[in-house]
Design a protein around this nucleic acid. Structure first.
Lengths: 333, 333
DNA sequence: CATTTTTGCGAAAACGTTTACTTTTTTGCA
DNA sequence: TGCAAAAAAGTAAACGTTTTCGCAAAAATG
């Protein structure tokens, strides 16, 4: 690896001059800069990020933390957020490194790992805020942005979950449905907001919610969603429409319905959530989250926080849109 | 951030001793080590990766490069490989950073980026080997492993693509199919191997391949696969079985069949490739690649190369298994 | 007890940058 | 021409480690 020292020798200037020239500082003559740049190119010079980071305390590297227990990377919704975050970050010269809690193969904590790698900031996506390690990280001085979770201390970007379910219920209502079941995910903040939207929507339309219509499953869990669907089908007074936790687990719902010989939407209406590619292709009625926007805005927030650590945490909401597919039938005609 | 200097002061020893104690070198008394470790813990010491890398020329950071044009991260097959690579790497104390061709926001090359970040090695996944930047990287001295592509210069791990298609065609044959169409992906090495398997399988069973049964689509492209399916349906002598490039694009095939009122497998048999979650759930007949094995073995190869740069490139093959779903009908009964 | 060997620790240089400060050179102006 | 100001370049310290080498003290040996 060719270093500034070698460039300096070749050019007959000092290392400082090389550094300043390549960083385009304004106390170096333009002619000198050009000459140095040219030689640096010829010699195939590439700065050393470690040395630079050591000196400047800036790595231009961002840690991304996500819950690996779940589908994690393989979750369509997540991977799109991550990808758009990555694209935005790279545009601004940041790199993305995954956060874990091992250092040199030994157990450690997320925060320690971030300190070790000197990340300029960290994005916390889909993480479990019951985990004390996550709290430790969120409470730390490290600039952080949370996606899909609001923590008082960090900037955050969340989807409009309440409105999402409200839109869904309103649509179902407009199609004549009065017996609407909702299989919701684990009781996180996200879920609570969606439930609020669900109940609001029902109240708005004068629907009394039958408690046996509200079940809990896990996000992205096809099996559990299947089980819940079976339970709903066993009720003496079946719902006419089932809202699933997300598009992916809705596959489980659809599968059970098919097994029972029920056709969608004729015998049962089904609504998903997320708007993942596969759902769109299959004509699923769903609420499409703006995952790309989520990632992009999350990066922007984080970059702001990195550049201005003093600014207070900001919480923003990204709006999605309702997608009318072909899995909900008009009722009562 | 507390540094070794501060630990040294508190302990009344030199910085060198602290470094050696924390790295468990054997010229430090056990009692001293313990004392230093204790103080370091109390003070919340965390080593500085940049400083360490600068001195040792080892970052314990691996670059991961993948083709972003395609589905990239959002591709189920890819994300599983990446995840298993990541898990294996973290187990051994490595971190994963995405490779791109920007440095500080300015265009550069993949190789330069790797040099800048001082990656110990790089994993090249699903990349386009027509891209001169990729070649530059593969030709460089940087330890590299390619997944799903064999480049003479790098170690590689590929799936048993030939056997995959052979198994598929044999199965289709065993189910009585003689008119088998194959919509294959872009003509990469992977595809060529699969085609070999396809033709071998057909020959083995005395099937003369109708050239109009062999079409080209793009991997992971639902629309194109739909188009190809339409073309096949327009043939006067339709095939009885369609092999798709991958499970995901097979969705396009299934959609077209549904639109045409053809039921699967009664009116048309369909076979996918990859064995992604969604396909398995839907009972797709497919060939499941060992994506987890692919990622794990790829890391192992790369780690070997990092530790022993002198060893020659090794090419290995990972075997998947045929999955008999419910999308192929028995014919001729 | 004298000598050698082993053990434990420290001094200092080095890794490749950046940057505050200083020095030298050039320019502008009276 | 002389002098101040501005521009250009250099000096050197620093960032936080690791590591080679040297030295002293302790332990082993005869």
């Amino acid at each position: 690896m060719v270093s500034m020292k070698e460039i300096a020798q070749k050019c007959g200037v000092s290392v400082a001059t090389v550094s300043k020239a390549l960083n385009d500082k304004d106390d170096i003559a333009e002619s000198t800069k050009e000459m140095i740049r040219k030689v640096a190119d010829e010699m195939g010079f590439m700065a050393n990020a470690s040395a630079r980071a050591l000196k400047t305390n800036r790595t231009y590297n961002i840690g991304v933390l996500f819950n690996n227990d779940d589908a994690g990377l393989a979750h369509d919704y997540f991977s799109i957020i991550l990808n758009s975050f990555k694209v935005a970050a790279e545009e601004e010269g940041y790199d993305i490194t995954f956060v874990n809690h091992k250092i040199a193969g030994r157990e450690s904590t997320y925060l320690k790992h971030c300190e070790y790698r000197n990340f300029d900031g960290v994005a916390i996506i889909l993480a479990d805020f019951k985990d004390p390690e996550i709290i430790e990280l969120a409470e730390s001085k490290l600039p952080a942005v949370c996606i899909d979770y609001e923590y008082y201390n960090c900037s955050s970007v969340v989807s409009d979950n309440t409105k999402g379910l409200l839109d869904i219920v309103r649509y179902a209502g407009s199609m004549g449905h009065r017996k609407i079941a909702y299989i919701h995910g684990e009781l996180t903040d996200v879920t609570k907001n969606r439930l609020m939207g669900f109940y609001d929507g029902c109240r708005e339309q004068g629907i009394t919610v039958d408690p046996s219509y509200v079940l809990q499953s896990n996000y992205h869990d096809i099996e559990q969603c299947s089980e819940c669907t079976k339970k709903l089908l066993q009720l003496e007074d079946r719902p006419t429409c089932i809202i699933c936790p997300d598009d992916y687990s809705a596959m489980g719902c659809l599968r059970v319905l098919a097994q029972e010989g029920l056709s969608v939407p004729k015998d049962m209406s089904v609504i998903g959530y997320d708007g993942i590619n596969m759902a769109m292709i299959n004509g699923m009625t769903t609420y499409m989250q703006d995952s790309i926007g989520l990632g992009r805005i999350a990066f922007k927030k984080l970059a702001d926080k990195i550049d201005h650590p003093e600014i207070p945490a900001e919480h923003s909401v990204v709006f999605g849109k309702f997608i009318e597919g072909s899995t909900v039938a008009k009722i009562g005609d």
